[in-house]
């Protein structure tokens, strides 16, 4: 079923795009990640110009994270306090990231930096999660109590001022490291064109000791807000948001997200973390393989963007 996209200016198979939306929405709902790190490269692979893909994916992520966030919010799993502190850091990080993005573009090495940061970030985060969730599973297999939370341990950042009690997350920490996490997520998100959920969730689980479900729910909330802001900013700044593409993606996305949320709740937390770890490592490996193997054609042509 072909449909012509008015901003991307090319026809696409609507069912293929819908299918991508469902698949990524499912993953998004299940793990609480926005899915941008999967969706943006997939769309570019189908021939959609990168500028349109990067600008249109945020609205899809907003729709599926909103749908997912409502489900979690009904279960009172979203920590709004934690979310707003993270958001303040994330917005600052996004602003710095957008500036850095422009700097890299001027030096012509944006692609390399984006690919390397995908490889490094996904590789490190994925491997750490893989090791942790595998050892948690082994522990529970041996019959030892499976816990991640170690309430007695205090890292250095617990001594920082501005302590806040985040009720839902059952943590009492300084707002500063939370803002730093938000900043890093916002910064990398702006450079890599992703929501940053795959960074945020592990950071919340492993550094902040937030329960997995609250991490997922709060990450969805944060993704929702940042992606709504990103949609409006892209529309105003770049004029490359394709509403037709976005609508097909978000329709598929909310469908997939609903089933994803249920699937996520049916799976045990450490299994969920293991699956997410495998996914993150797989995408990282894919980027890595692309970087080291010889391309079919060493030449490529892109439409020159006007860089002011």
């Amino acid at each position: 079923m072909p449909i012509y996209l008015p901003i991307a200016e090319l026809p696409v198979n609507a069912l293929l795009i819908l299918g991508l939306g469902v698949a990524v929405g499912f993953i998004s709902g299940m793990f609480g990640v926005g899915g941008g790190f999967l969706m943006t490269p997939l769309l570019i692979l189908t021939g959609i110009p990168p500028a349109v893909a990067v600008a249109s994916v945020p609205s899809h992520m907003a729709a599926s994270s909103f749908s997912g966030a409502i489900s979690y919010w009904r279960k009172r799993l979203v920590d709004f306090g934690l979310g707003f502190v993270l958001l303040s850091g994330a917005l600052l990080g996004t602003a710095v990231g957008v500036w850095f993005f422009g700097l890299l573009r001027r030096y012509g090495q944006l692609d390399l930096v984006v690919e390397l940061s995908y490889l490094i970030m996904l590789g490190i985060v994925g491997s750490l999660m893989l090791v942790e969730s595998a050892s948690a599973m082994i522990r529970s297999y041996r019959g030892a109590p499976a816990y991640v939370r170690r309430p007695g341990t205090h890292a250095w950042f617990h001594r920082l001022p501005l302590k806040v009690r985040f009720r839902q997350s059952r943590i009492y920490v300084s707002a500063l490291p939370v803002m730093v996490i938000g900043f890093v997520v916002g910064f990398l998100g702006a450079i890599m064109g992703v929501g940053g959920g795959f960074l945020l969730i592990p950071a919340l689980i492993y550094f902040m000791r937030v329960p997995t479900t609250v991490s997922v729910a709060t990450s969805l909330f944060l993704t929702l807000i940042t992606m709504l802001v990103a949609t409006v900013l892209h529309a105003v700044e770049n004029r490359t948001v394709d509403v037709m593409l976005a609508f097909i993606l978000m329709t598929g996305g909310v469908l997939g997200a609903q089933f994803g949320v249920r699937a996520g709740q049916a799976v045990r937390a450490e299994h969920l973390r293991l699956l997410l770890a495998i996914l993150v490592v797989a995408v990282g490996l894919r980027v890595g393989i692309d970087l080291v193997t010889a391309p079919a054609d060493p030449y490529s042509v892109i439409t020159t963007e006007n860089i002011e």
């Binding site: 609205s59 907003a62 729709a63 489900s71 529309a235 004029r239 909310v254 609903q258």
Partner: peptide
């Protein structure tokens, strides 16, 4: 619209995302 009423277009897309998300949650949630 994307070229001339950029802000309206952006806000409309954002609203569409919220509406789609809400509809999905009401229908299946």
């Amino acid at each position: 619209a994307a070229h001339e009423d950029r802000l309206v277009y952006g806000l409309a897309t954002a609203l569409l995302a919220l509406a789609t998300g809400l509809a999905g949650s009401l229908l299946f949630g």
